Amino acid sequence: MSVTDTPVAPDAVLVRRPARVRVLWLLVLAAVLIAVMTASLAFGSRAVAWSDVWAALGGAEATLEEAAVAKRIPRALLAVVVGAALGLSGAVMQGVTRNPLADPGILGVNMGASLAVVTGIAHFGLASASGYIWTAMLGAALTAAFVYSVGSLGRGGPTPLKLALAGAAISAALASLVSAVVLPRNDISDTFRLWQIGGVGGASYDQLGSVLPFLGAGFVICLAAARALNSLALGDDLAAGLGERVALVRAGAALGAVVLCGASTAVAGPIVFVGLVVPHTCRLLVGVDHRWLLPFSALGGATLLTAADVLGRIVARPAEVDVGILTAIIGAPFFIHIVRRQKVRSL
Rank of each mutant, 00 (worst) to 15 (best):
L212P: 02
G167Y: 10
A175G: 14
L174A: 05
R155P: 14
V211F: 02
D236G: 07
R193M: 12
L194R: 08
V249F: 00
G154S: 08
V200D: 03
L153H: 04
F219S: 01
Y205R: 12
V249R: 02
V246R: 00
A173I: 14
A166T: 13
P160W: 02
I188Q: 02
L183M: 13
L161M: 13
A226H: 08
T191I: 12
F192L: 05
G243K: 05
F214L: 06
A225R: 08
A203L: 05
G209R: 10
D190C: 02
G199Q: 13
V211Y: 04
L212K: 02
L161S: 11
G241P: 09
S210F: 06
R193Y: 08
R185D: 13
A173L: 11
E244V: 14
L215D: 02
V211W: 03
A247K: 10
Y205V: 15
L174V: 14
D206P: 09
A175N: 11
V181N: 09
S204C: 06
V249W: 00
G216L: 10
G252P: 13
A233Y: 08
V178K: 01
W195C: 00
A169D: 04
R227H: 11
L208Y: 10
D236N: 08
I170Q: 06
R227A: 12
A166W: 08
V211M: 04
T159R: 00
G252W: 09
A254F: 07
D206S: 15
L153A: 05
G202Y: 00
G198K: 03
